[in-house]
Amino acid sequence: MLITLSFLQFKVALFLFNSAMLIGLFIFSRLPLKQFLREFRFWVIFLSILFLFQAFFSQGIRLSFLLWLPISKEGLVLGGITVWRLGLIVCYATLFTAVTRPRELQKAIAWFIKPIPFLSERRVGLMVSLTLRFFSIILDEVEAIRLALKARLGDREKNPIRKGKIVVYPLLRNSFSRVEEVTFAIAARGFRDDLPLQLPKLPFHHVIPLFFLFGIFVVIEWFYL
């Protein structure tokens, strides 16, 4: 949250500090670079398009050595800073997701929603498990429908809307019929959502780096004033 808040401001010193910290954290995390780059590949395309968009369509003085190209110096600077900032946000989020176990993340979000009175952590937990279960079941269902469609030469259908309808309608029918089965199965097991959930407390040695980081951000802010 502290890092996210720091990205709300366009300050080069904060970007430099965050970039250095990201490199340090990446080395410390011992994540394979290949895996990280694979995750980042999708964003590279988006960021490149965004940079070109800013460079070509921003008003300002044209570059003297590239007069034949409608690129302005201001556009390049703006595009560069925007892409740098977005790249940092995406890298931090990718790194955070890669080094945090889903169970830990689930606990963290349960900790956030605990003060909200009408949200039961147990109910949220059950719904997450059900969604993941349904996700794999429906994927199998899609494959079964696709094979059935192929067996009936349905894959030769050229109209994408008609093709989509052939897949989606049986998929919905089959999925909805499962709702009743699952509901009775859960009810039969006596599910209760009013039991309290025990969450582990934040260890003290995890709090120290947070204070340290907060201090650095305050110092950077103070230099800018």
Binding site: R123, L126, M127, L130, T131, L132, F134, F135, I137, I138, L139, V142, L172, S175, F176, R178, V179, E180, V182, T183, I186, A187, F191
Partner: peptide
Amino acid sequence: KLRELVFASLMAALVAI
């Protein structure tokens, strides 16, 4: 309520699919 809960989870899974 349980039925609605299961149905909501199913719809979340369908959005993911």
